[in-house]
Nucleic acid binder design. Structure first.
Length: 103
DNA sequence: AGGGTGACCCGCT
DNA sequence: CAGCGGGCCACCC
């Protein structure tokens, strides 16, 4: 267990299965925090390929951002069976999950 | 020690 | 439906 906020974010995000997504808000909430923005920063600084940061989107279904470019993020999501149109996840409420705090 | 920044969010016009 | 404003919190000068 890392005390680092960043590491906790990674632990959570790592639990998101392929074909599903989560939001910055939910991840923060799973940590018992409201640091939505800090979550984004943590993911931005992440370099570990094990962390599927592309599966984290904004609360309204908007893609948000991505280090390697939103375009790439969109491609990865589509590759996992998630429909993306006009920079937004279609029917995102159905593929979105609420991650649980890590013990 | 203080202030600015951001892969955000929500409510009100 | 689009835009604006205020709020949130960790991280970096």
């Amino acid at each position: 267990m890392r005390d680092d906020f960043r590491h906790r974010v990674y632990e959570i995000v790592r639990q998101i299965p392929s074909g599903k997504v989560s939001t910055y808000r939910d991840v923060a909430h799973a940590l018992g925090s409201r640091a939505y923005r800090a979550v984004g920063q943590a993911l931005r600084q992440n370099r570990d390929p094990r962390v599927p940061c592309h599966r984290v989107v904004a609360a309204d279904g908007n893609l948000g951002g991505f280090n390697r470019g939103v375009k790439e993020k969109e491609r990865l999501l589509k590759k996992e069976g998630i429909s993306v149109s006009s920079g937004k996840v279609q029917g995102f409420e159905k593929v979105a999950i609420k991650p649980r705090a890590d013990y």
